[in-house]
């Protein structure tokens, strides 16, 4: 029987978007049955438009910077966009797949994406902004699958 993996994706920043998509796509390639439950800020990762998924140098002291940058500079307008642009360039240069690419591989491989209905209601998201094929569900639905998995992760 195929192994199973469940992931909770709760973060909506560029750096934290990678682990769920990398693990889900790779597990699917290894023959795992995979479900990813997107909740709170993680829901941003299911939008058709991923341009709001960014990285911030603020409160992120581990982020390698080309030059040391004081926090007061990091908070200036446009810093987030700049950091995101630089990170995307770096990812591309090193041959790391884009989030869109990994997400498409997941969908092609049959990874099931579940969007937290409560968060959708809470943030008043418009379901038409999300990619096709997403299922809407809650904690009990996720746990039904998670309880039978070999690997279960919270990201």
């Amino acid at each position: 029987m195929a192994k199973k993996m469940a992931i909770i994706a709760s973060k909506g920043t560029l750096d934290m978007a990678y682990p769920p998509f990398i693990l889900a796509s790779t597990a699917a390639a290894l023959g795992f049955e995979v479900q990813v439950f997107f909740t709170f800020y993680g829901l941003q990762l299911l939008r058709k438009d991923l341009s709001s998924v960014m990285i911030s140098p603020l409160a992120n002291p581990a982020m390698p910077m080309p030059v040391p940058m004081p926090v007061v500079v990091q908070m200036l307008p446009g810093m987030e966009s700049m950091a995101t642009m630089m990170m995307k360039q770096k990812l591309k240069k090193h041959g790391v797949a884009s989030l869109q690419e990994l997400r498409e591989v997941c969908i092609e491989a049959g990874v099931k994406f579940i969007a937290c209905q409560m968060t959708v209601d809470l943030f008043e998201f418009d379901k038409s902004e999300f990619i096709d094929g997403v299922e809407w569900g809650g904690a009990a639905m996720f746990l039904g699958f998670a309880g039978e998995t070999d690997i279960c992760l919270f990201v």
Binding site: S25, T26, A29
Partner: peptide, 13 residues
């Protein structure tokens, strides 16, 4: 060549 993890695996599949 030039592709990083996990692309070599995904492309192999």
């Amino acid at each position: 060549s030039g592709l990083s993890c996990p692309l070599p695996i995904l492309k192999t599949k």
